[in-house]
C-alpha cells in the first residue's frame, strides 16, 4: 500500500515570457498520515512552485515524476477534484474577489467539497454557526465574514482568512505556503494554534517557511531543506534550529 502522499522524481517548468524555465528538478518526498513536515530553503529554490504543482495550477508543466495522494494519481486530477479529495493550499498571497461576500464564498466552497465527498450540504443557518465559531477561535472580527473575499484585508487578516477556510473545508492534507510571512508574533501564534487544532492521525501538512518561529509553535515531525529544485537534506526538528543559527549557505555547500 502506497504512502499517504508520495512525490517521486517530480520535475516541472514554467513558461516565463517565452522562456522555458525548469524549476523543480526531481523532488522526492513522502509524507505519512498524521505528520507535519516543513520545507525550508532560500528564495527561488522552488518551494512555492512545489505547492502550486501539487494544487494543480495550470501554468506549470510537469515534465517528469509522479505524485500519489491516498493511492490516486494526483497529477491527473483537476484542481477542484484535488480539493474534494482533501488537499488544501493556504496561499502565500491570498487572492481578492471583489463583490463576493466572504461567507457566501466559504459556504459555496464548503458545499462544493461536501457534495463531492458525498456529504449533505449545509444550510445557511448551520453554516453560519460553524463559520462564526471558527472565526472566533482565530480571533477574527465577526464582520470579516460579511466583507468581500480578501478585499481591503490587512496582510494578517488575509492569512487568518486562509486558516479559517482551511478549518471549514476540513482537508486531510494542507499546504501552508509562507503563511507566517507578514504576521506579528501574536498573529503567528493564533495561526499556528489554528493549524494545531486540526492535527490528528487523519491530517497531514506541508509547511513552507523561512523562519524558525512558526516551527516553534507547530513542531514538525520532519524538516526538509530544498535547493535548486530538489530536496537536499532531511532531518528532525533540530535541523530548523541549526539552519536558523548557521544559515543556508553551509548546507548548500555541503550538498554541492
Amino acid at each position: 500500500m502506497s504512502q499517504f502522499l508520495e512525490i517521486s522524481g517530480l520535475c516541472a517548468r514554467i513558461d516565463a515570457d517565452g522562456q522555458e524555465k525548469q524549476i523543480l528538478r526531481g523532488v522526492d518526498l513522502t509524507i505519512p498520515p498524521g505528520e507535519v513536515h516543513a520545507i525550508m530553503g532560500p528564495n527561488g529554490c522552488g518551494k512555492s512552485t512545489l505547492s502550486y504543482v501539487l494544487a494543480g495550477r495550470e501554468d506549470y508543466e510537469v515534465t517528469a515524476g509522479s505524485v500519489t495522494f491516498k493511492g490516486q494519481d494526483l497529477l491527473a486530477m483537476e484542481p477542484e477534484e484535488r480539493a474534494a479529495a482533501g488537499l488544501f493550499l493556504a496561499f502565500q498571497s491570498p487572492i481578492e474577489l471583489p463583490g463576493v461576500n466572504n461567507a457566501n464564498f466559504l459556504r459555496t466552497a464548503v458545499n462544493a467539497v461536501r457534495r463531492a465527498r458525498g456529504l449533505e450540504e449545509l444550510d445557511a443557518v448551520a453554516f453560519l454557526k460553524m463559520a462564526r465559531e471558527a472565526a472566533k477561535s482565530l480571533s477574527m472580527a465577526p464582520d470579516m465574514l460579511k466583507r468581500n473575499v480578501n478585499v481591503g484585508f490587512s496582510g494578517g487578516e488575509k492569512k487568518r482568512n486562509e486558516v479559517l477556510q482551511m478549518t471549514l473545508l476540513q482537508p486531510s492534507f494542507a499546504i501552508l505556503d509562507e503563511t507566517d510571512s507578514g504576521l506579528d508574533v501574536d498573529a503567528l501564534r493564533i495561526v499556528a494554534e489554528g493549524v494545531n487544532r486540526l492535527r490528528s492521525p487523519d491530517f497531514s501538512a506541508l509547511v513552507i517557511t523561512h523562519h524558525q518561529k512558526l516551527l516553534d509553535y507547530l513542531v514538525p515531525d520532519r524538516i526538509h531543506v530544498m535547493a535548486k529544485g530538489r530536496i537536499i537534506l532531511s532531518g528532525g526538528p533540530e535541523l530548523a534550529k541549526k539552519i536558523d543559527q548557521e544559515g543556508y549557505t553551509k548546507f548548500l555547500a555541503e550538498a554541492a
Binding site: G56, E80, A83, F91, I95, F105
Partner: peptide, 14 residues
C-alpha cells in the same frame, strides 16, 4: 484573472 479562477477552484469550485 487566472489567479482568481485558480483560487476558487483550489477551494473546490468548478
Amino acid at each position: 484573472s487566472e489567479d482568481q479562477l485558480f483560487y476558487c477552484r483550489q477551494r473546490g469550485l468548478s
